[in-house]
Nucleic acid binder design. Structure first.
Length: 496
DNA sequence: TAGAGGGTTGATGTA
DNA sequence: ATACATCAACCCTCT
């Protein structure tokens, strides 16, 4: 760091994602230029809305913020929390503390890009230097784009893997946490400490029914969870995503590190290099795209596409999204969203989504297929918004990309491959333990009928204490009928 | 440039 | 058990 170009001055470190102190480029940069360091976190009114960001998701994020604050306190610093429009809050802070630098991590989703543009413009007017560091993705996406040398971003994984091969491995994580200076006098600034979710307007009324997420947020939990998985070297090198079970829940069949990576409580580069170390010490290992490292490449690929494709999260004005004439039916959508379709696997999944804020990837596939091209013929945008609200790992680019994938709007076109809400879960869980756990009303239904309880004779329903049409709904649609009809519709769309 | 090859994860029936 | 064809025939990528 050139001390002449960057004379030490009071510095704001603005945490948004990267809610961690390990491998944090923005934190490192800030410590290099700061005479005084002010770590801040802003509760943006855009996000404080239980209709948009659900309880589990908000709570998980707050737990990450809280853990970060705890870590900073070990250095006699702490996280200064503000409510309000980021540009207003930051301007106020810069003036109060006479700051010369604002450090933060590059963000690539659409809302963050617009937010940061406003902040950058205002900081320029105020003569405050912004130091923007890459760190949420394996590669700096802007550098990845230059490596394309004018070629468009590949839309298929094979093309992306070729790009990665050409670019070489991602940067290694920072080895040591830099020395974080103690927090100075704050002056006349109205900041808060990290709130509890029940202190946030709009969320407190949900608390009694919503403390159902088994995953706790935070960097320390994330690092511990990663370490537990890293011990299972054999499991890591044999990992193949399509072969993991969507109905396993105690424990799940995948790492569930995605929510931590999404918030930046775990560095994706650290995880990458830890996995690489394990892989390198074994002769046999699965390969991308199905391996664990392959999963990180999917994330990177979708981040790059989301960054470079206009209107990536919608049909209108999105050049890679095939416009399919979806039809909205409120009653069907609400049945899906509320887990009342009458298909136990779908309803159990939607219940898990709300209780846990997390679903296995393949379970997401089944409910997404059901909402869109499989059964209900409702736009993937509606499903994307629902996932965005409830998933603790809901990630803008990845969510939109997967919904386009599943609905055959982009990336994937074999529309005659339709998930069955009956046959698919039966392969993994013939006893229906997953359904029994998340839908207690069906707990005593015999296994023979667990995925299609409307077929159970009345006597069986009575014995199971679950009358279809009374205790649990009849199916809202006939899957076989809808599947046939929708494949025909898809054929027409694709013939054009 | 037209055509071949291939694509993380369907369901079902048959050998 | 595992492999393969069928369903009906997509579309990106590379040669």
């Amino acid at each position: 760091m050139d001390a002449k170009l960057y004379p030490k001055s009071p510095t704001i470190l603005w945490f948004r994602k990267s809610l961690r102190i390990h491998d944090n480029n923005a934190l490192l940069r800030a410590t290099q230029v700061a005479s005084q360091l002010y770590p801040i976190f802003i509760l943006d009114p855009y996000y404080i809305n239980p209709e948009k960001i659900g309880y589990q998701r908000f709570k998980f994020m707050l737990e990450c913020v809280k853990d970060l604050d705890k870590s900073l306190r070990k250095y006699q610093s702490r996280l200064l929390v503000f409510y309000g429009e980021p540009v207003t809050v930051i301007e106020r802070c810069c003036k109060a503390w006479n700051c010369a630098y604002l450090c933060f991590e590059k963000d690539t989703d659409i809302y963050s890009r617009n937010r940061d543009k406003k902040v950058l413009e205002r900081m320029k007017e105020l003569g405050i230097q912004c130091l923007v560091e890459s760190g949420h993705t394996l590669y700096d996406l802007d550098i990845l784009i230059t490596k394309l040398s004018g070629q468009s971003v590949p839309t298929q994984m094979t093309g992306f893997l070729k790009l990665i091969e050409q670019v070489g491995p991602p940067p290694r994580p920072i080895e040591h946490v830099p020395t974080i200076p103690p927090l100075n006098e704050l002056g006349n600034v109205d900041c808060s400490s990290v709130p509890e979710i029940d202190d946030i307007p709009g969320y407190s009324e949900f608390s009694s029914e919503c403390n159902t997420c088994p995953f706790q947020g935070g960097e320390s939990v994330a690092l511990e969870r990663m370490q537990q998985f890293l011990k299972r070297e054999d499991w890591i090198v044999k990992f193949s995503k399509p072969h993991t079970s969507p109905t396993s829940f105690d424990p799940p069949s995948t790492t569930v590190l995605s929510p931590y990576i999404k918030c930046g409580a775990l560095s994706v580069r650290l995880f990458f290099w830890e996995l690489k170390r394990v892989e390198d010490s074994h002769s046999f290992k699965t390969k991308p795209p199905t391996s664990l490292i392959g999963q990180l490449y999917w994330r990177e690929h979708f981040y790059l596409l989301g960054y470079t494709t206009p209107n990536f999260d919608q049909i209108q004005g999105n050049p890679i999204c095939k416009p399919i004439p979806w039809e909205y039916r409120e009653d069907w959508f609400l049945a899906w969203e509320r887990g009342q379709t009458g298909y136990p696997f779908i309803d159990a999944a939607m219940t898990q989504l709300k209780q846990w804020g997390w679903l296995h990837h393949l379970t997401r596939h089944v409910v997404a297929c059901f909402l869109t091209r499989g059964d209900l013929w409702i736009s993937w945008e509606k499903g994307k918004d629902t996932f965005e609200k409830y998933l603790i790992d809901g990630d803008w680019s990845i969510n939109a990309a997967n919904w386009m994938w599943l609905s055959c709007s982009a990336f994937f076109t074999r529309y005659f491959r339709v998930y069955s809400p009956i046959a698919f879960p039966k392969k993994y869980d013939p006893q229906g333990n997953y359904v029994r756990y998340f839908l207690p009303v069906l707990r005593n239904m015999p296994s023979k009928y667990i995925y299609e309880p409307w077929k159970a004779p009345l006597k069986v329903q009575q014995d199971a204490n679950c009358r279809i049409g009374k205790d649990y709904p009849f199916p809202i649609v006939d899957h076989e009928e809808m599947k046939k009809r929708n494949i025909q519709r898809m054929m027409q769309v694709f013939q054009k």
